[in-house]
């Protein structure tokens, strides 16, 4: 696992996979993909980085503790459900707005926020599991 090629390539691979995971997340509503898959891809990316470079750089690169990321995700997912309360419709009712940005109509929705929350929970939880297991001394 500690070959020079792998160690050199791992950061690029990770960056690419992270980008791909976001792409998978965002297209999820209309094409195969979504929060769960995206989250798993991102988590694998970070796990690969951890195997290649050790867990310290990963934790450093992440800035936040992975569990914090997961908690944020859960919070966002709950929030996405609660937004419907403002609109006086039942919990978790999907709400859509279509603001236009530079003439392009961008669909935004609570559903998307929810999916992003799922993504963060999966990334955070799985990464924290993987990183914990990658420790030498546990």
């Amino acid at each position: 696992m500690n070959t020079v090629i792998f160690r050199t390539l791992a950061p690029f691979l990770t960056a690419l996979m992270l980008l791909f995971s976001l792409f998978v997340l965002l297209r999820g509503h209309n094409e195969p993909g979504g929060g769960f898959i995206g989250g798993l891809i991102a988590a694998s990316a970070l796990a690969i980085y951890g195997i290649a470079r050790g867990i310290r750089p990963v934790r450093h690169a992440l800035w936040f503790h992975p569990m914090t990321i997961a908690a944020t995700g859960l919070f966002l997912a709950c929030l996405a459900g609660l937004v419907s309360m403002v609109a006086a419709v039942p919990f978790m009712t999907g709400l859509w707005i279509y603001p236009s940005l530079f003439g392009v109509e961008i669909p935004l929705s609570t559903v998307m926020l929810f999916d992003f929350g799922v993504y963060l929970v999966v990334v955070g939880a799985i990464t924290s599991i993987a990183l914990a297991l990658e420790r030498e001394d546990f």
Partner: peptide, 17 residues
């Protein structure tokens, strides 16, 4: 199944540890 896969994975990891 999609959610089941992810949950069973996380439980599997828990069981493992």
């Amino acid at each position: 199944i999609l959610t089941a896969i992810v949950i069973s994975f996380s439980f599997f990891a828990f069981l493992l540890v």
